[in-house]
Design a binder for these strands. Structure first.
Lengths: 257, 257
DNA sequence: GCAAAAGTGTTCGATCTACACCCATGC
DNA sequence: GCATGGGTGTAGATCGAACACTTTTGC
């Protein structure tokens, strides 16, 4: 409780913040965004990948992405790319968050590219129609990609793996699972999201109790689900809450499937 | 369970990954790292700030940092800057993790600078001696900075605030609190870290029980603390575990102090 | 002696888990 | 009818918060 805010001198041998900057002394950096767009198709988690049409990694699959433009920040660039690649996010609300930045000097063989990676969660998308300048893109089941069925370009395998772990962890303490579902959904469908992402079955009764115990996680709407065997299921929409307190917990722990 | 891995075409109007890249079409980006170096001094959380010697923001305080060199990634740059600024991290193990990337086009008035921010946690440092090319740096109590006592350069107030929230949240599920302490410490000292960072007093008995219940959080060493009133306290060192399961919980929730 | 802090124990209530059961509907 | 899935209830175990108590040392 004695010394605090004491003024000290420190030795500094490196450059301090952006002072004395000589652009010619540094190579040009390109800054891109790469987006892991995750969705559930037929009950399994999928990501959107784009087939590369040019070297390096020609023919390999890569995460969608693009350059950060001069007048936008990375968040805006990611939002723009998301709309351009999938058409979603324009009107539909989509969960989009920064994952982390990948900056290995050799990650792109051509030049120095620093990539800010993002994770987007979206409901199952209607297959977009091919435009004139369409690039080949398709949904891949995450398990098939991670299990080494295909090799991804650049360091995108690492990015994908980090993204999947982020999604799994985030479902514990955030209400983002609803982002995988359409506007209205049943609690059984919400549970199916957890079941698939975590790869473990949750007790439906206890799950229902816990979800309803979190204020603002879901709000009931005046509709019921018909057309399926069983009783009329109450439909819900996503509420305003973003955090789950106390958090849900996966059975084993941080390790995945 | 029907459609999966279906091949779809999507319209793409923007640039795809780093293909067809024309460097001259884009302005030069500079990439820097900024580091929030946090420590506990006299029981209060402090961060290291550097006084700027040149415009913009001359005379204002800023986070230590510097440019990412051509042959290193951001993690390496952050590690290097940390050593250069404080001398720590060379031999002492220091917790250093990426926070997030800040890329607002106007965040540096001179040019386009994208900054990858880091958080470092360190034990109370011996005041470094001033070198010949010393820059003025000092430890600031976090509360004094956040409460608007001083204005930080660039968007560093935002970065600092994000970093503090990250630290608070991380103490819930990670064993990083030991990074604030010297090699050996008592459980009372570990509790003091939580008390200060969270701003709430934890029950010492329950705290002790929970810490000891996490395998590998702390390991007892063959020493006891002397020189203070009270019984000889058992000393511990940090263990191998990085995660706390089940996580500790702060009383209110995500909001701070 | 007294204050400060370590270490141990116990109680009570909240919470979570794991079931069992009933019901409504599509096929 | 029967499989499917929604909704309700409950007993037991587990966990955690609160608090009481003893002990040991520096001053």
């Amino acid at each position: 409780m004695t010394k605090q805010n004491s003024r000290v001198e420190v030795t500094v041998s490196g450059p301090i913040a952006p002072e004395n900057y000589d652009p010619s002394a540094y190579p040009p950096f390109a800054v891109t965004v790469d987006i892991v767009i995750a969705t559930l198709r037929g009950g399994r988690m999928h990501v959107l990948l784009v087939e590369r049409g040019a070297d390096p990694y020609q023919g390999a699959w890569a995460l969608p992405g693009g350059f950060v433009e001069p007048d936008e920040d990375a968040d805006t660039a990611a939002k723009r790319e998301l709309i351009e690649e999938t058409g979603i996010g324009r009107s539909t609300p989509v969960h989009l968050e920064q994952l982390r930045t990948y900056s290995d000097p050799g990650r792109d063989p051509r030049m120095r590219v620093v990539s800010v990676a993002y994770v987007a969660l979206a409901p199952d998308l209607p297959d977009p129609v091919a435009g004139s300048d369409a690039a080949v893109a398709r949904w891949w089941a995450v398990d098939d990609v991670v299990d080494g069925e295909i090799g991804l370009a650049f360091d995108h395998a690492r990015i994908l793996s980090d993204a999947v772990e982020r999604i799994r962890a985030k479902l514990e303490y955030a209400t983002v699972a609803t982002s995988f579902l359409p506007r209205v959904f049943t609690l059984g469908e919400l549970r199916a999201v957890y079941t698939e992402v975590w790869g473990e079955a949750l007790d439906l009764q206890n799950f229902r109790r816990k979800v309803l115990a979190v204020p603002g996680f879901v709000e009931p709407v005046d509709e019921v689900r018909t057309g399926v065997p069983g009783p009329r299921a109450q439909l819900y929409r996503a509420g305003d809450a973003t955090e789950i307190v106390p958090p849900f917990r996966r059975a084993p722990h941080g390790e995945g499937r």
